[in-house]
């Protein structure tokens, strides 16, 4: 398990996307919502039960389950 994926982002933190490890339809879907290399993502917070979490991606708020967010690799989190 890679240590610097999207699930490691704490609420309020932002970081740029380094690449995707997700495969298949989910890879496509992540790209379609704008998660390509260089996109800056901000974590907004988790749902009341801890999973999924909401992320601010290119001006839209998208909820991703932890399982799926783990497929997005990040550059070093820039707080």
């Amino acid at each position: 398990m890679n240590s610097d994926n999207l699930t490691r982002l704490r609420p309020g933190q932002s970081a740029a996307v380094r690449g995707l490890t997700a495969q298949g339809p989910m890879r496509r879907r992540l790209q379609d919502i704008g998660l390509v290399k260089g996109t800056v993502v901000q974590c907004l917070g988790a749902s009341p039960l801890g999973d999924p979490s909401a992320y601010l991606i290119r001006g839209a708020v998208i909820a991703l389950r932890d399982r799926d967010a783990a497929g997005v690799l990040l550059e070093r989190p820039a707080v």
């Binding site: 879907r29 839209a60 708020v61």
Partner: peptide, 11 residues
């Protein structure tokens, strides 16, 4: 197993 999905939270 549950499949992946994205859910948009619109303004």
């Amino acid at each position: 197993v549950p499949s992946s999905f994205t859910l948009e939270l619109p303004p």
